[in-house]
Simulated scan of single mutants.
Amino acid sequence: MSQQPFSRPGAIDLSALKRPAPSAPPAGAGAPAGAPGGAPGSGSSYAVSVTEQNFQETIEASVTAPVVLVLYSPGRSPESATYAEDVAAAVAAYEGRFLAALVDVDVTPQIAQALQVQQIPLLMVLLDGRPATQPIPGVLQADELSTLLNQLAQQLTAQGISGRHQPRQAGSAADGEEDEEYVDPRYAPAQDALAEGDVDRAVAEYEKLVAANPADAEAAAGLAMAKVLQRVQGVDLYAARAAAAAAPDDLDAQTLVADLDLYGGHVEDAFTRLVDLVRRTSGKERDAAREHLLGLFAAVGNDDARVLKGRQALASALY
Rank of each mutant, 00 (worst) to 15 (best):
S2P: 13
Q4K: 14
P9D: 01
G10A: 05
G10Y: 06
A11H: 04
A11S: 08
K18Q: 13
P20C: 00
A21Y: 09
A24I: 13
A24F: 12
P25V: 01
A27H: 09
A29R: 06
A31Y: 04
G34S: 07
A35N: 09
A35G: 10
G37T: 12
G38E: 05
A39T: 14
A39D: 10
P40W: 09
S42W: 13
V50T: 06
T51S: 05
N54G: 08
I59N: 01
I59A: 03
E60T: 12
S62T: 05
V67P: 00
L69I: 08
V70M: 04
Y72G: 02
P74D: 03
G75M: 15
R76V: 05
P78T: 13
Y83T: 10
A84K: 09
A88T: 10
A90F: 11
V91F: 07
E95Y: 12
R97Y: 12
A100I: 09
A100S: 08
A100R: 01
V103W: 03
D104L: 00
D104T: 03
V105P: 04
V107Y: 04
V107L: 04
T108W: 05
Q113A: 15
Q116H: 10
V117N: 00
Q118C: 06
L122D: 07
L123C: 10
M124E: 03
R130C: 13
P137G: 08
G138A: 01
Q141C: 10
A142R: 15
E144W: 02
E144V: 08
L148I: 07
L148Q: 01
L149R: 02
Q154R: 15
Q155W: 09
Q155G: 07
L156G: 07
I161Q: 14
S162E: 04
H165N: 09
H165F: 11
Q166S: 07
R168Q: 15
R168F: 15
S172M: 15
A173E: 04
G176V: 12
Y182D: 06
V183M: 03
P185K: 08
R186A: 11
A188K: 14
Q191N: 12
D192K: 14
D192F: 11
D192Q: 14
A193M: 06
L194W: 02
E196H: 12
V199N: 02
Y206A: 00
A211W: 04
N213M: 10
A219H: 08
A219R: 09
A219Y: 07
A220R: 13
A220Q: 11
A226T: 11
A226G: 08
Q230N: 12
G234L: 11
V235L: 02
Y238L: 14
Y238S: 14
A239Q: 10
A240L: 05
A240Q: 03
A240M: 06
R241P: 12
A244N: 02
A245W: 02
A245I: 07
D250F: 10
L251E: 02
L251D: 06
D252A: 15
T255H: 04
L256S: 06
L256D: 08
D259I: 01
G264F: 00
V267F: 01
E268S: 12
A270P: 04
F271K: 00
D276R: 11
L277Q: 06
V278M: 02
T281I: 06
T281D: 01
G283F: 03
E285H: 14
R286W: 11
D287S: 15
D287M: 14
A288T: 15
L293T: 11
G295L: 07
L296M: 07
V300Q: 06
N302M: 13
V307C: 03
K309Q: 13
G310L: 00
L318Q: 11
Y319P: 13
